[in-house]
Structure formats: C-alpha cells, structure tokens
C-alpha cells in the first residue's frame, strides 16, 4: 500500500472539504483529494484551520508533468494529530500553467513554489517573489517538463525498457536470487546498465 501510515483517506477529506466549501473538490481517491485549481488557497486555508484536519504544516509541494497537464501535489500534515493529507490540483494549461500560490497560507511554500516554477514552469499567482531558484534568469525552458529537450518520434523521456532486459521471460526477471549483477552482461555495448558498475 503506497499510502503513508498516517495518511488520511482522500474520500473522507473530500466529504468534509466539499461540505465546507462547495465546489472545491473535483475528485477524490483513496490516497488524495483533488481540488479546483483556482480555489487551492481556500482549500488549503480551510484544511489548515479546520479542527478535524489541522493541516498546520505544508510538508512538501511539488508538481508532476503528465504531458497534457500538470499535477501540483501538496503534502500537508498535522503535527498535533499526526496525520497526513495529500491534496492535488490539476493545471490544465500545459503551455502557460498558472496556479494560486500557497504562500499566503503556508510560508514554507516560498522556496518550494519557486523551485516548481523554475523546473516546471508553473507560475504561482500572488507569490511574493516569483523568480527562478536554481537556474539563471534567461535559461531556456523548464527542465523537469517532459518535453524539455524533447525526444522525437512520439517517444517520451524515461526508461521504457531496461537495456538487456529479457522481456519475454517475466518469470525469470522477477525470480528473486536469480538476478545478481553478475548475471547482467557487462559488455552490452554502451548500455545504461553497465553505467552503474
């Protein structure tokens, strides 16, 4: 189960959040709750101030490029109740993405949003200091986007197939103890597997 030990059920959060702020929740799953992008601030503020969730701290803020849209992920946590809330916001515009900033709610979003802007290109409105964080001003593009230095022919970055992997024999692959590093052919010309020796 990939959810954390103290992570709250997304459906439960969605029910409460939806009741308090109608129209905010757009979707909910076991693990997270998805909110309307333009009302992220309201949702976060409500979660922070609510007695039940008490999401006092923004633990992590990041974004995932889903080719057609961005997912901005907020990992909130309540220290007193020791529970975690995962909120997501979908930014549909892949060309010029923008989202309200979480900074008015959580000061800890200051640098994390700058990082997301720098690497993903998502602009956060009302962020006090929306500049690049790591890369220099004028760096072309946002490197964590999947289309950065895009690979042609409809392919995407990411290892689709492990080099030298015997796809035909799935059993052998998953057989524990059978796959040690000696099994891997080292001399497979320029393969990525041999890069890690």
């Amino acid at each position: 189960m990939p959810a954390g030990p103290h992570q709250l059920d997304g459906h439960r959060i969605a029910a409460r959040l939806g009741a308090a702020l109608p129209g905010v929740v757009t979707r909910a799953t076991q693990e997270w709750v998805e909110v309307a992008p333009e009302r992220v601030q309201d949702a976060l503020r409500w979660l922070r101030d609510s007695e039940e969730f008490d999401a006092a701290q923004l633990s992590n803020l990041t974004a995932v490029d889903r080719h057609t849209h961005f997912e901005v992920v907020y990992h909130l946590q309540s220290l007193d109740l020791n529970q975690q809330v995962v909120v997501k916001a979908i930014v549909a515009d892949h060309e010029a993405p923008s989202l309200p900033s979480a900074y008015p709610v959580y000061k800890g979003a200051l640098l994390q949003e700058r990082e997301v802007y720098d690497l993903m290109g998502i602009r956060f409105a009302d962020h006090p200091d929306m500049r690049r964080l790591f890369l220099w001003e004028g760096f072309p593009g946002h490197p964590l986007r999947k289309d950065f230095l895009g690979i042609g022919h409809g392919q995407t970055s990411g290892l689709q197939r492990f080099p030298n992997e015997d796809l035909a024999n799935r059993d052998r692959m998953m057989n524990a103890g059978n796959l040690t590093s000696q099994d891997m052919p080292r001399e497979a010309g320029g393969s990525m597997a041999s890069g890690g020796h």
Partner: peptide
C-alpha cells in the same frame, strides 16, 4: 534480492 529492473506498479508514494 530484487530484480535489477524493478518495476513498481503504477502509483505514487511519498
């Protein structure tokens, strides 16, 4: 022992 080409099921984890 885990496979070198570990393929976790689609999903996400923090």
């Amino acid at each position: 022992d885990i496979p070198l080409a570990l393929r976790p099921p689609p999903g996400e984890v923090y």
